[in-house]
Each structure stands twice: as C-alpha cells, then as structure tokens.
C-alpha cells in the first residue's frame, strides 16, 4: 500500500472528452425512490458510468442509501453494501484489506475497485474519524462525498457542510440569526492534509470535469477523495428541473470552485475568470432568498467575502504550484 506514484499513470488517458466514449450500460437501475430531480443520484450515476469496470460500492446511511435499497428492491447493478452512517470508510477498509488477503491466498485473481458514497453529514461530521483513519492507513479506495449541504434525509438539518447564511430547520433565520452562523468546513484541505495522492472537488453540472477526476483518482494506488456538489431541490427550495442549473451557477459564481489537489499541488480545473454575481446563485433557491432582504445585507456581504477569500486562497495555492 504505497501512497501512490509521483505522477498519475494515466493523466492524459484519464481525460474524458466526450460522452460518446462513456459506456451506456447502466450500473444503477431505475425504480429508486429519490425525489424527482435528485442531485445526489445524478452524482452517483455519473461516477459509476466513469468507471472502466464495476466497482464495489460501500454506501453510508443517507438519502442515496435509503432511496435505493428498500427491501426487496435494490437499484444497484454493482456489488453494494450499506452498514451504518459513520463508518463507511472503515467498512471499505475491511473490504479492501480482505480482498488483498484473498488474492494472496489465490482465492481471487485480483482486487476490485472500491468506491464509497457518503453524504456531507456522513463525511464532514459523523464519519470524519473513520475517513481520517482510512486515509492514514492508505487503503486503496475512492471516497465520494456527495454534498447537498445539510442532513436532507432527516428533514433538512444543518451540517458542517452547510454554507454560511443558509436556512435549514436547525439554522433558521430570524431577528438574530442570519441562517447558519458558521462557515462551511474545508473538507478537501482536511483530506489533503493526510497526504493522499488525489483529492478534488467536482459538480454534477460539469460531467466532463467530474468523470475525468474519477478516472484520475482511479489511476492512483491509494486513498483518493472526490467532493461532489449535488444540489437538493427539496432542501434548497428550488424547482426540480433546476438541479443542474443550480449546480452550474454555484461553479460560475465561484461559490463552489472546481479544483484538485494532486500529490499536494493545487490546480483550479475550471478557472472562473468572469464570475457571475453571487445573487444569480442565491436568488433561485429558497434557502438563501432571505439574504437578499435589506435586513440581512450584512450577512450577504459576509458570505460574499467568504466566497472571495476562498477563491483568492485557492488561486494562491494554485500559483504556488506553478512557481515550483
């Protein structure tokens, strides 16, 4: 279990250029009970279709898990397991390590790829210990956090991935609170600090970037991480048809930057040279609409400041890499 080679084996080969090169054999079956227009389910499909072979899926408790696995109906056309909420990285560690032992015994020919799907609650909050342990031990897996920025399955409660100012049922706005009072946790930096070979953000709106990142991650022998922006129309309060549009605007306003950290080096994969006004993103969602009212102007300014600051930090980190 090495930390991975210095350069990706297939950096060029990893690049996905067209949908036409993607296998059309589905790895997820319809008939699941996700809400119409579910962002996380789009993330799951795009990631699974990017795999060159069937991975074993370890799924944390959460929306994706419950809607796809109501006994006796499962939507998974690849091997799949759910155990609990906080431990998907540990379960995946066991799957991966056991396959190594079975291969050494000659009972299987090779290990299959392991992918984890966990929500922001299962990753940023309750699952961060198991995630940290698995990253440190260096298990070969792709850990995907599908981020819908709150606990949606239990009914829209704030998580440490919920952005500043957002309304949730446990971060309501009122005469004192502006919505959520704390900033979003920088999970990619936390993951990257473990020294993993590859960590990146991606958005369901940018499938080419997302699928390229999946394939890049797979080229490494070690733990890799993908933080995928996956809007929830129920929790964010927008029309189901706008799921992709909302994700796209998050990227175009620099609210959710697309970047990667490869062997410690930051690179913005989608430079946003002329960002749209943040209001273009906020105004189409009920969870942020209050920020456009005069009494929350300070909070709006604070949120804008956070967005600018993060972009500047990323730019600095990325240029530090170029200077090397």
């Amino acid at each position: 279990m090495s930390a991975g080679s210095a350069e990706p084996k297939g950096g060029e080969r990893a690049q996905v250029r067209s949908l036409l090169e993607i296998d059309r054999r589905e790895r997820l079956a319809p008939g699941h009970r996700a809400c119409a227009g579910c962002g996380p389910m789009i993330a799951v499909r795009q990631i699974l279709q990017a795999y060159p072979e069937d991975p074993i899926v370890v799924n944390a408790t959460g929306c994706v898990e419950v809607v796809t696995s109501v006994y006796p109906e499962t939507s998974w056309l690849v091997p799949w397991v759910h155990v609990a909420f906080e431990n998907s990285a540990a379960v995946a560690s066991g799957v991966e390590a056991a396959m190594r032992a079975l291969r050494r015994r000659g009972e299987i020919e090779r290990e299959r790829p392991v992918v984890v799907f966990a929500g922001d609650g299962g990753t940023f909050d309750i699952g961060i210990q198991a995630l940290s342990g698995a990253l440190e031990r260096g298990h070969r897996m792709l850990y995907v956090c599908y981020d819908n920025e709150a606990y949606m399955n239990t009914g829209i409660q704030r998580s440490s991935a919920t952005p500043y100012g957002a309304w949730t049922t446990t971060s309501p706005y009122g005469s004192v609170w502006p919505g959520k009072r704390e900033a979003k946790k920088d999970i990619v930096a936390i993951v990257a600090a473990h020294g993993v070979p590859y960590a990146a953000t991606a958005s369901i709106s940018h499938w080419k970037d997302l699928m390229t990142k999946v394939r890049k991650a797979l080229s490494y022998d070690g733990p890799t991480f993908l933080h995928v922006y996956a809007p929830c129309n129920r929790g964010w309060r927008f029309d189901p048809s706008l799921t992709v549009e909302v994700a796209k605007r998050a990227v175009e306003t620099r609210f959710f930057p697309l970047y990667e950290v490869e062997n410690g080096r930051y690179r913005i994969t989608l430079p946003v040279t002329k960002p749209r006004p943040l209001e273009d993103f906020l105004s189409i969602q009920g969870r942020f609409r209050h920020l456009l009212l005069p009494q929350y102007r300070e909070a709006l300014e604070e949120l804008k400041r956070m967005v600018d600051e993060r972009w500047e930090r990323l730019t600095r980190l990325a240029s530090a890499r170029r200077a090397e």
Binding site: A29, P30, G31, H32, R33, A36, T68, V70, Y71, P72, E73, T74, S75, W76, L77, V78, P79, W80
Partner: peptide, 24 residues
C-alpha cells in the same frame, strides 16, 4: 411474495419492478 434472504441481501437491480410513474 419474495424471499427473506438470511442477512437481508438481495439480487441487484430488483427495483426496476417498482414503478414511479405516478409521481409525474
């Protein structure tokens, strides 16, 4: 009408039998 498999596993992809067209 369906088996109770020990440990609760099930053959993959069975949800195609479940139709969600009435949500539309």
């Amino acid at each position: 009408a369906f088996p109770i498999n020990p440990g609760g596993w099930y053959e993959g992809g069975s949800s195609v039998e479940y139709h969600t067209n009435d949500w539309r």
